[in-house]
Structure formats: structure tokens, C-alpha cells
């Protein structure tokens, strides 16, 4: 059994994010402190426009804060160049998007392989790794299909495989079940919960899907750009083993 001692993978310190929308100045995130420990399975939830996607973008180094510090793996990302941010995303973070966002000209296999190729992993190793992860998400048979020839659920499983194939420390999933029916959504969540438990991949969701919250061990509620509540459950719905993915101490918010 792996050690359950954890360390912060993400730290937000007094983070604010403003942007202009026409003539309006919008406070999307307003003074957020948040710590995510390695191995967590956490949902950031809140109504539309509450700032959860902005928060996820900031953590994913897709956006920079107006104020405050964002630390990923202990590293302050606000001073990094575009290329350095790209490298950080490539090596430490996996993304799962609401609209799957697979590369349409690549097959399922190639979509998953892409991240490893960008990392410069040799072809033989890539093949081995991709086949193994596709087997894990149950898509080995469909590996030569292009996204347009797959269902939404299948595409999202490819997206999850792509997000975890390079063993990132953190997977960010923005409304991953929003476009899926409840059955497919549940299967996907179970798959991610298994990956969390077996590979200790940290999962962070932005969602307003109750099912996602059900699966999560920690729920961070965001309202008007601020953290309104930070709850810890004894176990998530996806937990099959009482010892795995032990919840860390809650964030400071």
C-alpha cells in the first residue's frame, strides 16, 4: 500500500481575476485561497458564472491571475513564459474538457499518443503506454477510430485516457459529464475514481452535476468568485476500497 502522506499540488494565495466584458469589469475570482493535496478527488461546484471555470483555468495555467499567486507543484506560475507554461501543462497537468476536444484528424490511439509524442517519448514506449491506457478505459477495440466515428461517452473516455496517459500529477476536468447521459457519466466517473485510486492521480472537477459531487471526496463551493464552503466527505461514491484515496486535510478556505 502506498503512503498516504500528501503534499500540496496546487496552492492559490489571495487570487483575484478580473476581466472586461464590453464596458463591464467582471470579478470572476475574488480573493481565493485554496490548497489541493496530491491524490485528491475534488469538485469545485457552483452555479453558472460563479467563477469555477476561471478558477480551473488559473490552476491549469491557461490563464494568469490579476492578483495573488498560483503555485503548481510548488512553483509560482505567474512569472513563467508561454513556452514554460506549455511545458508545465505538458508534464504536470492533464485536461478533460466538457466538449471532449479531441483532435479530429487523429484516431483515438493517436489522440492519446499525442501528449507522449509532445513529451518526446520514443515510439515503442508510446505504443505500449497508449495501448495499456486504452485497455484500461475499455477502448482498445476502437483505437483506430476517429472522434467523429465515436459516441460522446467514448470520446470522453479517450479524452480521459489522453489526460492521464503521461502520468500527470493533476487532472483538471471542466464539466466532464455535461454532455453525457447519466449512465455514461457514471461509468466515466467510476473510471476516473479508479484511476485516482490505482494511480493516485489528483482529479479536480469544475461541475454543477450532482453525480460528480457524489463521487468527489471534497467539495469546494464557489459563489460570486469566492469560496463559500469547503466540505470533506468520508468517502466518495466511486470508492471501492476504504483505504484508497484517503482524504487529505481540507483547504484553508
Amino acid at each position: 500500500m502506498e503512503s498516504t502522506k500528501t503534499q500540496p499540488i496546487v496552492e492559490l494565495q489571495q487570487v483575484r481575476k478580473e476581466y472586461r466584458q464590453g464596458h463591464l469589469q467582471v470579478q470572476a475570482v475574488n480573493g481565493v485561497d485554496l490548497t489541493i493535496q496530491e491524490g485528491e478527488f475534488t469538485a469545485i461546484c457552483g452555479p453558472s458564472g460563479s467563477g469555477k471555470t476561471t478558477l480551473l483555468n488559473l490552476i491549469g495555467c491557461l490563464d494568469t491571475p490579476t492578483e495573488g499567486r498560483v503555485l503548481v507543484g510548488g512553483r509560482d506560475v505567474s512569472a513563467l513564459s508561454d513556452s514554460a507554461l506549455a511545458d508545465l501543462r505538458l508534464r504536470q497537468i492533464g485536461f478533460v474538457f466538457q466538449a471532449y476536444n479531441l483532435v479530429p484528424v487523429l484516431t483515438a490511439f493517436e489522440n492519446v499518443e499525442l501528449v507522449l509524442a509532445l513529451q518526446g517519448v520514443p515510439a515503442a514506449q508510446r505504443k505500449k503506454r497508449v495501448l495499456s491506457i486504452l485497455e484500461e478505459v475499455g477502448l482498445l477495440e476502437l483505437r483506430d477510430r476517429r472522434p467523429m466515428d465515436m459516441s460522446g461517452g467514448q470520446q470522453q473516455r479517450v479524452a480521459v485516457a489522453r489526460a492521464v496517459v503521461a502520468n500527470p500529477r493533476l487532472v483538471l476536468a471542466d464539466e466532464p459529464t455535461a454532455n453525457l447521459d447519466s449512465h455514461t457519466g457514471a461509468a466515466l466517473l467510476q473510471m476516473m475514481a479508479d484511476l485516482n485510486r490505482e494511480h493516485r492521480v489528483t482529479f479536480l472537477f469544475s461541475t454543477h452535476d450532482p453525480m460528480v459531487m457524489d463521487y468527489s471526496r471534497r467539495i469546494v463551493r464557489v459563489v460570486d468568485g469566492k469560496i463559500a464552503a469547503d466540505e470533506l466527505k468520508p468517502r466518495g461514491a466511486g470508492d471501492r476500497s476504504p483505504a484508497a484515496g484517503d482524504p487529505p486535510a481540507a483547504g484553508e478556505a
Binding site: G60, S83, R89, L90, V103, V115, L118, Q119
Partner: peptide, 16 residues
Amino acid sequence: TRELGILKSLGMRPWS
């Protein structure tokens, strides 16, 4: 634009 943005978020460098 969206697809190229995805590639960038996955970690493709700007010059790539």
C-alpha cells in the same frame, strides 16, 4: 482557433 487552443492547452509549445 479552438482546436489550436486545445493543442496549446495540452502542452504544445507556441513555436510548435
